[in-house]
Amino acid sequence: MSKNLTLEDPLGKVIVVTSGKGGVGKTTTSAAISAELARRGHKTVVIDFDVGLRNLDMIMGCERRVVFDFINVIQGDAKLKQALIRDRRLEKLAVLPTSQTRDKDALTKAGVETVLEELRQEFDYIICDSPAGIERGAQMAMHFADEAIIVTNPEVSSVRDSDRVLGLLNSITDRAGKADADPIRAQVLITRHDKARVNSGEMMTVEDVLEVLAVPLLGIIPESKAVLRASNLGVPVVLDAPSAAATAYEDAAGRLIGDQIEMRIAADPRRGLLQRLFRRAV
């Protein structure tokens, strides 16, 4: 009767989206990957770890609905269920916002662990949107992760910071400290990739970045106007109009959960003649 054992729901997987450097696309990535996983039918929650500077709520478009936050839950002022904001577009997606008014010391290791354990029971994927830097907030976001997405621009300071973050993942996290646990599976996601500048030799190639970092590639997100538009509208880029960035994020989310998808560098669709004539605003 061993079959019955496999019927039990496996615990959810915790995936941290991190980078070290700020402004490389962690929150855009967290929003897009979590929306795509939910659209594929997986119960997904995305958590903002940037205490004091909350922004995931704006990128997800739920900023007007925040009542309780991650810190309220850790401090016992609200139950997890009360702080989770259900997405109005995707039934399987939820957002756990962070506090705008506290400081990063409000995140305790025990508190974070308790909340993540509870989320693992209910959700298939728990996406942790890390703050920039390598201090407390970033360390809390990565501490209990099973996997990591390192968001990197093909640019020297970003690649250097990514290397530093990879070092932390392999030294200070829960999995790194347990002799019997597998190490964190880390993959690099290259964002703001500009094919024209790579071709003209102005930008490092994907191969250059991978050679330096020596971790597997999760995906290549092209520089795209769609990203700013999605952020303006408060819509994860994969849920907005079709774009090269959306396609690239869909592919990356697929690879994250084990799909074999050929690596490609998507290009934004050219506007039709009529659209160009009438200069439809984006």
């Binding site: 303006n232 509208l233 659209q275 009438f278 200069r279």
Partner: peptide, 14 residues
């Protein structure tokens, strides 16, 4: 299927 007027720009929504 298309309008002669531009869509409201996303920047104003932001």
């Amino acid at each position: 299927g298309f309008s002669l007027r531009p869509r409201k720009a996303s920047a104003s929504t932001a």
